[in-house]
Amino acid sequence: MIWQLDLLLLTLVVICAVAAITVRDLLAATVIFSVYSFLMCLLWAEMGAVDVALTEATVGAGVSSILFIATILHTSRRSKD
């Protein structure tokens, strides 16, 4: 546990979370969400929960963003609201 690293990662996670729901382009939101997942993975690995970190890296940053992109390519890329 290095609290400076924790604080840095947590700040970046919050910034990514706010950016992912405010950005208008859905593809950009997907990429930011993938970055958010990877930062959460780093945070969990840093806190000692390596198993959860591995799950987050494979599912959150890997497969779910691919599924989002596949869905966006078949629907609209622009957000209506």
Binding site: V50, D51, A53, L54, T55, T58, V59, G62, V63, I66
Partner: peptide
Amino acid sequence: PGGGFQGGVLLGA
């Protein structure tokens, strides 16, 4: 660390 779920997701990926 790891297990059936993570390995399965990697195989699917």
